[in-house]
Amino acid sequence: MRNEGISKFLFVAALVLAGLVVLNALALHAVRRQYAPGTSAAAALFDVAGQAREWFGYIKQWKDLSAENARLQDLAARSVSSAATIESLQAENDALKKTAGLATRLKRHLLPAGIFDISLAPDGYHALINKGAADGVAAGQTVISPAGELVGKVSAVFSTSAQVMLITDPAFSVTARVLSGQTSGIAHGALADGLNFELVTQADTISEGDTIVTTGDDLIPAGLVVGVVRRVENNDTQLFKKVNINPSIQPGQGPVVVIQP
C-alpha cells in the first residue's frame, strides 16, 4: 500500500513537472531565471576571497612602493650631490687648465683659490678668498683671475682664508702701460669709478678703448690685464690727462689664482 502510494505520488509529480516543462519550453520560450549572486554561492565566495586577496595585494604593493619611493628619493639626492660635485670639479679643471698657461708664462707658482665674500664699503673694496696661511698665502701676493686679469693683492692673511684688496680700492695702485703703446702711468683704485690712470701727460698718446696692462715695475708681475680705457679728458691747462679705466674683471664670487714666489 505504502509502495503504491509512493509510486502514485511519483507519477503525479512527474506528470505535473512534464506539463510545466512543456509550458516553459513552448509558451514561455524556455525562460531561465537565476536569483543567486554570481553563478553560484561558491563563485560569489571566490569573488570575495579574490577581492580580499587583491586588497591585501594593494596594501603590500603600497608598502613596497612607499619603500621604493624613499629609496629613489635618496638616490635622487645622491645624484644631485654627485652632479654638483662633478660641476665643481669641472669648474676647477677649467680653472686649472687656464692657470697652467699662466704658470708657464709667469714662471711663478700659482695657487688656485675661490672668492667667497666681497665687501664694497665706502672705506674700501675687499674680498675674502678660501686659502690662507696654511696654504702658503702671504700678504702682498698678487691675486688674478684664471684668464690673467688683475683682481687685487693680499692685504691680510688668516689661517685658512685671506683678505684681498681689490684693484678698485683707493689704497691699491699698480704701474701700468697701454698695451702695444708707449704710454705708461700708475693706475689707482677709484671705488665705483673703477681706476684712474695717473701721471699720463698731455703729450702721451692714449685713447678710449685702449687696454691697460701691468708693467712689472713694482711687485706685481708684468702683462696682467688691468682694464680698458673708459674716458680720456684732455686739458691743456693741466699737466696730466685725466684717464679713467674700466676694470676688466668685476668683483664677484668665482675662481681666482694667487701668485706665489
Binding site: L10, A13, L17, A18, L20, N24, Q34, Y35, A41
Partner: peptide, 30 residues
C-alpha cells in the same frame, strides 16, 4: 513522501540559483 517533496524543493532552488532550465534537475530527481 517528505523525501520526494524535499528533493523537489531543493532541486528547484538549485535550478534557480544556477540558472539551469526548469525541470532538468527536478525531473532528474524524480
Amino acid at each position: 513522501r517528505w523525501v520526494i517533496g524535499l528533493g523537489i524543493v531543493l532541486a528547484g532552488l538549485t535550478e534557480l540559483m544556477l540558472g539551469i532550465y526548469f525541470g532538468t534537475i527536478i525531473g532528474a530527481w524524480l
